[in-house]
Each structure stands twice: as structure tokens, then as C-alpha cells.
Design a protein around this nucleic acid. Structure first.
Lengths: 146, 146
DNA sequence: GTATTCCCTACTAATCAAGTAGGTTTATTA
DNA sequence: TAATAAACCTACTTGATTAGTAGGGAATAC
């Protein structure tokens, strides 16, 4: 019942890109340094985001990545699903799964369905823009408190 | 983000015991047959429930298991936590986890906290008695429809 | 043309999942 | 009391997944 580093890192990458969303390209190297994540590993994760069309890449010197859309257009759920795969808590709820022959006598499926709804509702209720907003607010508060 | 067979089977065991809660002992062999689960594997799972005090065992011929309390006193969450371990979606939310030094600048933690609350709320909002109730209702409906 | 950056594939070590296997202990019953 | 039926316990296995590492290739700016 855990979200792997892949998904968590992906969310942090999107947040990082949102916070540095100046129109300039952001290098993986910089994100990795800021987030304290292995550069090579991040490369793999961001390439998933790239293939999904969530970020746009520019190769070569001065290259890097940018968000293709506005941060408010990405939910955390979108990012997690594309990196983690399905967020279904049990296999038989995954899309395209063959309904198990036990389902019609299996009350537990009701619970997993509720669980899935609850999970979806949380992760799709928060956008990358929200994360960025929270971050900015927190930084402001830190400034005042010093 | 999935619940393993261990947890799911445990819930089904509890439901099975609730549905056959006549005061008599229920053998692992019978549960395994009804649920279509490997007897040996179920043995391991039910022993966890036994050590947690959720079921009471009787050894020897005519032995077996019984629920120690009323089905309504067990939430699905209790059963899952004891078999799956923590239901925290990320390691840093697990109890006793050392707070990572990044947490204070890590807005994503907010999302994981909401997620955990949502998950807890679902799994602790359904009891084994609810599952049994749903099952009985469904069986009734099947009877009428024939 | 060289440095920089993304891109792609393969490999690895450790852990976890989902069982299998085989024997030990305890209670019933013939 | 011997046979049987059950829970109990520990170790092993096979395959998948996780969390990276490693090494080179292709595009682009300067």
C-alpha cells in the first residue's frame, strides 16, 4: 500500500518545474541537485513524464525541460498514474482486468472500490499548482518569522 | 499502491468466520475450500490473526478457529493493518519513522497525509459485520430473482 | 568541433510476494 | 492407548518489483 519513489520523485519534479516555470529550460542536473535525487535515476523518471507529454524536452547545450501546460492543469493523480501505473488497490479493479469469477460473491470488492474512489478523489483533488502555492506560502511565513 | 493477497485473504477469512459464526470451530481446511485459497498459505495468514487476538484457536481433532469478538468489532482496517503492516502510503508517515530532513520543505507530504486519512477513513468505516450483512442481502436477492 | 544536454538500453543487488514443504504439538475418539 | 485430525512452526523457493547504476549515442548551442 505504498507509493514508490518513482511516483513520489515524479511529483517533486513537476513541483520543481512549476516553481521554476520561467519559460527557460530546466536541466535534470539542477532538479536532481535541488531535490537530492540521483541524476541518472531522475533522467529515467522524467523521460516517462516526457513521453506522456507532461513536459517538453530540448536537447543539446542549454537544453532541459519545461512544463507543457500550466501547473494547474496537472493533478497529482495524473503524475502518479503515469509513473506508478494504475492506482487501483487490487488487481481486479484495474482497467482491462478480467473480472474474477469470484467477484459476484465477493463483498470485499465493495471495500476496494470505495478505497479506489477515496484515493482518486485525493490525488485528483490536488494540482501541481496547489503544491507550488503551498510552497510559496510556507516560504513567506518562514521569512516573516525570522 | 496495492493490497497484497495476504491482506485480502485475511479479510475474506474474517468474513467467512463471521458468516459461520455459530459458536462451533471452523477448520482452516473448510475456509480454504470455500474461499479457493491454498490451505497452507491460509494457515500462515490466520496465525497472524490468531496472534493478534482476533481469532481464537482450538487444537486437535474438531479444533479450528472462531472470532473472539463480535463481527461488528472488527474493521477492515484492523484486519489489513495486522496482516499488511502499516497502511501508510509513504514510509515517512509510518509510526516510528524518523521524520526525513526534507519534510519541512516538502509540500508533497501534505498530499500523502490526506491520502492516508482517506484510506483510513474507508477501511475503518467498514466492519466485518457490514461485509456479512451485504453478503446476506445479496444472497436473499439472488433467491428472490430465481 | 567540442562541450553540454537529453535519450536509450542493459544490468544489478536487495527486497517482497505468494506460495510450498515438512515436520511438531495438542486434543479427540475409536 | 493408538490413531487421527487439527493447529502450530520454521525454512525454503520462485518470480517480480524496487531503486537504482552504468555506459554509451544523438542533438544542439557556442
Amino acid at each position: 500500500m505504498t507509493i514508490s519513489t518513482k511516483g513520489r520523485y515524479a511529483v517533486r519534479v513537476m513541483l520543481d518545474l512549476a516553481l521554476h516555470n520561467t519559460g527557460e529550460c530546466i536541466k535534470v542536473k539542477d532538479i536532481a541537485a535541488r531535490q537530492g535525487i540521483s541524476e541518472k535515476y531522475l533522467e529515467q523518471i522524467i523521460s516517462v513524464l516526457s513521453r506522456a507529454g507532461y513536459v517538453k524536452s530540448m536537447r543539446g547545450a542549454q537544453g532541459g525541460y519545461r512544463l507543457t501546460k500550466d501547473p494547474k492543469d496537472y493533478t497529482v493523480g495524473m503524475v502518479l498514474r503515469v509513473t506508478e501505473g494504475s492506482l487501483a488497490p487490487v488487481a481486479c479493479l484495474e482497467e482491462g482486468a478480467d473480472v474474477c469469477e469470484r467477484c459476484d460473491t465477493c463483498e470485499t470488492v465493495m471495500v476496494w472500490k470505495k478505497l479506489q474512489q477515496a484515493i482518486d478523489s485525493v490525488v485528483d483533488g490536488v494540482t501541481v499548482a496547489d503544491l507550488a502555492e503551498w510552497h510559496k506560502k510556507r516560504v513567506e511565513n518562514l521569512d516573516y518569522s525570522i
